[in-house]
Computed example of a mutant assay.
Amino acid sequence: MPDDKSKTDNRDRSRVSGDEEYEVGYLASKFGLSIPDVRQLFVKHGNDRDTLEREAKALGNR
């Protein structure tokens, strides 16, 4: 079924879903972290994309 371009949704791209394995895996591979490290970032900092990427970058540089 083709995408209907007239329908838009209200997804918030500034948030990361910690329940989606591909999003957790993406952050882990992008910053060279383990999956448990990324899960701890979600627990500690929430699901804001900018905050998670900033903290993951800091953790990956250690």
Rank of each mutant, 00 (worst) to 15 (best):
40 Q>N: 10
12 D>N: 13
26 Y>A: 11
14 S>R: 11
32 G>Y: 01
59 L>S: 07
15 R>G: 04
44 K>T: 15
10 N>R: 06
57 K>H: 13
7 K>F: 13
2 P>W: 09
1 M>E: 05
36 P>A: 11
19 D>E: 09
21 E>N: 09
57 K>M: 13
47 N>P: 04
15 R>V: 09
49 R>D: 01
48 D>R: 07
25 G>S: 03
52 L>D: 03
38 V>W: 01
51 T>L: 10
38 V>T: 00
23 E>R: 03
38 V>Y: 00
51 T>Y: 04
44 K>R: 12
26 Y>M: 12
21 E>K: 11
22 Y>M: 10
20 E>C: 06
49 R>L: 07
37 D>A: 06
40 Q>E: 14
50 D>G: 09
22 Y>D: 04
30 K>Q: 12
56 A>F: 01
61 N>W: 15
58 A>K: 14
9 D>C: 12
46 G>Y: 09
32 G>H: 01
48 D>W: 06
29 S>Y: 00
24 V>E: 04
18 G>W: 03
28 A>M: 06
36 P>Y: 12
19 D>Q: 12
10 N>C: 09
23 E>M: 09
61 N>G: 14
55 E>W: 02
47 N>H: 08
36 P>W: 12
38 V>H: 00
43 V>L: 07
48 D>I: 09
28 A>Q: 04
56 A>P: 08
33 L>P: 03
53 E>Y: 11
50 D>T: 00
50 D>P: 00
41 L>E: 01
46 G>S: 02
14 S>T: 15
33 L>D: 01
62 R>T: 15
58 A>V: 15
19 D>M: 07
4 D>L: 12
44 K>G: 00
1 M>G: 10
26 Y>T: 15
31 F>K: 14
32 G>C: 01
60 G>D: 15
1 M>Y: 10
49 R>K: 14
1 M>C: 08
45 H>D: 05
16 V>D: 01
5 K>M: 11
31 F>L: 10
45 H>N: 05
41 L>Y: 04
40 Q>A: 09
35 I>W: 00
53 E>F: 07
22 Y>P: 01
39 R>V: 09
52 L>G: 03
9 D>H: 14
34 S>E: 14
16 V>A: 00
6 S>H: 08
52 L>I: 08
23 E>I: 06
31 F>H: 15
11 R>M: 06
54 R>F: 14
61 N>L: 15
42 F>K: 03
46 G>C: 02
20 E>Y: 08
42 F>C: 04
21 E>D: 10
26 Y>G: 10
7 K>Y: 12
33 L>N: 02
2 P>N: 14
14 S>C: 06
11 R>C: 05
55 E>P: 01
56 A>L: 04
35 I>R: 03
18 G>Q: 05
37 D>I: 06
16 V>Y: 02
51 T>S: 09
22 Y>N: 14
3 D>S: 10
47 N>W: 02
22 Y>S: 15
53 E>T: 07
